[in-house]
Design a protein around this nucleic acid. Structure first.
Length: 814
RNA sequence: GCGAGAGUGGCGGAACGGCAGACGCGCCGGCCUUAGGAGCCGGUGUCCUCGGACGUGCGGGUUCGAAUCCCGCCUCUCGCACCA
């Protein structure tokens, strides 16, 4: 039961390491669940096993564990699971470099991290532990893929994709950061490849709409980032007839009102359409241009600073509004995979079109009179509101009315329609890598893409010794010939397995569901358990996942809802993004040599001191500069708590003091309020104040046992070892972590007297100790009678007097 | 360029529109000590004629009253960035 049986260490002075030793053993069989109590799911983003835990983990899990432990103390039956996001490139790269296999590297790191988590004192439910690279996990990742496939939500298509030349693999749009590979930083190029996609675009509007209830519960900036990423755009499709071509070409525009201002037409240089439209006479010029564009890296291409480039394709489009012939150009400022890959160019009212027109000397026609100078002379396109001109029937209308009128006209003439498009692209999920979940599809020459039957899952990875891991632009799985060749599940003929593996973001898009029933064998999760726990009440993790992981997880949840597997659409009710730990103003890095090692800090200051430092440094979403904080200061406080607990136990009794009791009640109430609001820095500060109050009270001979016990209980949310030790010193044989958050007697929160501030012209001139029930007239009289108030009035008469009983009086001189 | 957020002591940071600077670090002084990188106590926004005056990036506004709300600037951080 209690600690000393386990470790046999008697602690006689505050020695954090000895305390850790003792309780680590005593906690071995500690079960923090509270069966029968209301359930709450407190979730932390699971780690990637890249090595041992680092400072960033320290902060994330200090916060996550404070939330979990606080929730337990509040009486909930808390699920606080841990697992590992264990598939992924680094394992493979490390394996290539060291000649081991990815599994060994991964599982070794996981064991290291698991051990460190235990030492860090995190209140995980270890029975739920999972690893996404375990076959019993990825079996269900594959199973889910097949459900998506059946629904038409997983499909294969050929298209230009982001390619990392260093990692030799394709990347999702979300993994390209400023034209660079998110993982390795190499410049990303485009390749035309056939790849697997999830149809996340079908869910664009829902992903947007369902954010509404998250407002206030998720950080604003995450919601904004997701909104921007989804990029909803209202406008119209407009069809343009191309001279000498039967089929019209459709463009998307947000400004159908400016149709009369279109003076040329642009097709994305890398879109198949450009290749179709170009005349024989212009073909060689076009192909030369296209090759040049292909050679550009994404960063070069995306630079807005560059002057516009392009080439005339030799054909003309007919403006459906006025019948004008518009020259058709190919250019790289038009994107092949947004809208329709073609635009009508209105240089007067679009900056990019204007830049292009000025480069190639194309006409500029103003059709919205904004009152600003002519764009052709200023070089600045006018995008604001104004009256339509040079626009036939639209003349005189304001922008918004003209947009409406033009859409109506297009719809009645059949030349176009109002529409909404999104910036969001489908999620490219296939990877030409070994260490991931194989895509459970068999390619058969007669049957096509055939799903592996559910009862043949999982499709296990071939053993690493059968595979050549070296990157070569094709999946390493293709080199495991005996693995690749299988009979077609449909017709039995010899067929080939799909050799790609899934993006690891697929694994992490449903792990929070698996935690609810990690050993369930009849499906990815037990629906009954999921109903009990989900959606997660609290999700804590880094802001680097603001788009990627969180958008994918939301998407998965919605698909599962549509499949009838879950009955909710949003997985995480409340989200907290903790900041980073930096050093001397900069992110820690090897090249800067400013790294701080978590293990070393723990060895030096003790686990609790480091955890308290993380929480006390600043609000959780702010970065912590380790050069600005004081783990030894935190340690000093913990020692004072420990000392107090011992002193209180050693001197029973004492006088009771109402003022001390009131201060304790107030500080407990405030700590609770700040815990609820995730202001852990202030919650810790209130506990420090409480320590000071109790110490002074004790030294004055008061009985502060109840207050000290309350302190120990609250402390257990931040510093579980010291709290446990303090509780034990107070004579308890049970665990502080299993206690209830201290109750506050509301009567003690009602002050017997309050300090009333008396202001003259808004400036504080006096303070009065008054009863909280004082009458307004009496307070007013007392305030006006105060000597310093009279002095401040200095002969001036009394004008208006604002009285807010019992806390404030403001006197305005006449 | 677009979008979001933030500017408070030497530092990290507190503050339902109502006492600015809680709590801590650092610093100063004292006690204790053979010793102090230990512990304890006290002090610590600026100016000052010791009665006060000023003070939350800058300038306006609302209000009896603004760090807090509104408008306009400045600076910084983050996100997106040729998305038609």
């Amino acid at each position: 039961m209690c600690g000393d049986e386990g470790a046999g260490v008697i602690v006689t002075e505050y020695d954090p390491h000895a305390i850790e030793q003792r309780w680590l053993v005593a906690w071995e069989d500690l079960d923090l669940r509270r069966p029968g109590a209301p359930k709450r799911y407190v979730l932390d983003m699971f780690p990637y096993p890249s090595g041992d835990l680092h400072m960033g983990h320290g902060e994330a899990f200090s916060i996550g564990d404070a939330v979990a432990r606080y929730t337990m103390l509040r009486g909930y039956d808390v699920m606080h699971p841990i697992g590992w996001d264990a598939f992924g490139l680094p394992a493979e790269n490390a394996a290539i470099k060291r000649g081991t296999d990815p599994a060994t590297w991964t599982y070794t790191n996981i064991e290291t991290q698991a051990e460190s988590f235990r030492r860090f004192g995190v209140s995980f439910d270890w029975s739920r532990r999972l690893q996404t690279c375990d076959p019993e996990y990825y079996r269900w990742t594959q199973w889910l893929f097949l459900r998506f496939f059946e629904k038409g939500l997983a499909y294969r298509k050929a298209s230009p994709v982001n390619w990392c030349p260093n990692d030799q693999t394709v990347l999702a749009n979300e993994q390209v950061v400023q034209g660079l590979c998110e993982r390795c930083g190499a410049a990303v190029t485009k390749r035309n490849l056939t790849q697997w996609y999830f149809k996340i675009t079908d869910y664009a509007q829902r992903l947007l709409d369902d954010m509404e209830p998250l407002v206030g519960n998720w950080p604003d900036r995450v919601l904004t980032m997701q909104r921007n990423w989804i990029g909803r755009s209202e406008g119209a499709y407009v069809q343009f007839v191309i001279e000498g071509r039967d089929e019209p070409v459709t463009v998307f525009t947000t400004r159908p009102d400016t149709l009369y201002g279109a003076t040329f037409f642009v097709v994305a240089a890398d879109a198949p359409l450009a290749d179709e439209l170009v005349t024989d006479g212009q073909r060689s010029a076009f192909e030369a241009y296209r090759e040049r564009v292909k050679g550009l890296s994404e960063i070069e291409r995306q630079s807005t600073e560059r002057t516009k480039t392009g080439v005339f394709l030799g054909v003309h489009a007919i403006n459906p509004a006025n019948g004008e012939k518009l020259p058709v150009w190919a250019a790289d400022y038009v994107l092949a995979d947004y809208g329709t890959g073609a635009i009508m160019a209105v240089p007067a009212h679009d900056q990019r079109d204007l830049d292009f027109a000025r480069t190639f000397d194309l006409p500029v026609r103003v059709v919205v009179d904004t009152g600003l100078e002519d764009p052709l002379t200023t070089g600045i396109a006018t995008t604001g509101d104004g009256r339509l001109v040079n626009s036939g029937p639209l003349d005189g209308l304001a922008k918004a009315d003209a947009i409406r009128a033009m859409i109506e006209q297009l719809e009645s003439s059949g030349g176009g329609s109002g529409t909404v498009i999104f910036r969001l692209r489908d999620w490219l999920l296939s990877r030409q890598r070994y260490w991931g979940a194989p895509i459970p599809i068999v390619h058969c020459t007669s049957c096509g893409e055939v799903p592996v039957p559910d009862d043949q899952l999982p499709v296990l990875l071939p053993p690493p010794d059968q595979v050549d891991l070296k990157p070569k632009g094709e999946s390493p799985l293709g080199t495991a010939h005996s693995w690749v060749e299988v009979p077609c599940p449909s017709c039995g003929a010899t067929a080939r397995r799909d050799t790609d593996t899934m993006d690891t973001f697929v694994d992490s898009s449903w792990y929070f569901l698996r935690y609810c029933s990690p050993h369930y064998t009849d499906g990815p999760f037990d629906p009954a358990e999921v109903r009990e726990w989900m959606p997660a009440a609290q999700y804590t993790g880094g802001v680097e996942h603001a788009i990627l992981h969180l958008l994918y997880a939301r998407f998965f949840t919605k698909v599962l809802q549509d499949l009838g597997l879950v009955d909710f659409g949003e997985p995480f009710s409340r989200l907290l993004n903790q900041g980073q730990v930096v050093n001397q103003g900069k992110a820690m890095s090897k090249s800067l040599g400013n790294g701080v090692d978590l293990g070393a800090e723990l060895a030096r200051h003790g686990v609790d001191a480091v955890r308290v430092t993380m929480l006390f440094a600043s609000p959780p979403e702010e970065d912590i500069d380790w050069a600005d904080v004081s783990p030894s200061g935190a340690g000093k406080w913990l020692k004072r708590v420990w000392q107090l607990a011992g002193d209180v136990a050693g001197r029973p009794g004492g006088s009771s003091d109402l003022e001390v009791d009131r201060a304790v009640a107030r500080l407990v109430a405030e700590t609770e309020r700040h815990m609820e609001g995730h202001r852990f820095n202030v919650a810790v500060a209130r506990c420090m104040e409480l320590t000071n109050v109790l110490r002074k009270g004790f030294d004055a001979g008061c009985d502060v046992r109840a207050g000290t016990e309350a302190l120990a209980v609250m402390l257990s949310a931040f510093a579980p070892y010291t709290a446990e030790e303090a509780w034990h010193r107070l004579g308890h044989q049970d665990f502080v972590a299993k206690q209830a958050w201290p109750q506050v007697d509301p009567a003690l929160l009602v002050r017997e007297s309050v300090t009333c501030v008396v202001q003259v012209a808004g400036k504080v001139k006096a303070r009065l100790e008054v009863s909280p029930e004082i009458a307004e007239e009496q307070l007013r009289a007392q305030a006006l009678d105060d000597p310093s108030v009279r002095r401040a009035l200095a002969g001036r008469g009394v004008g208006k007097v604002i009285v807010r009983v019992p806390k404030l009086v403001n006197i305005v001189p006449a």
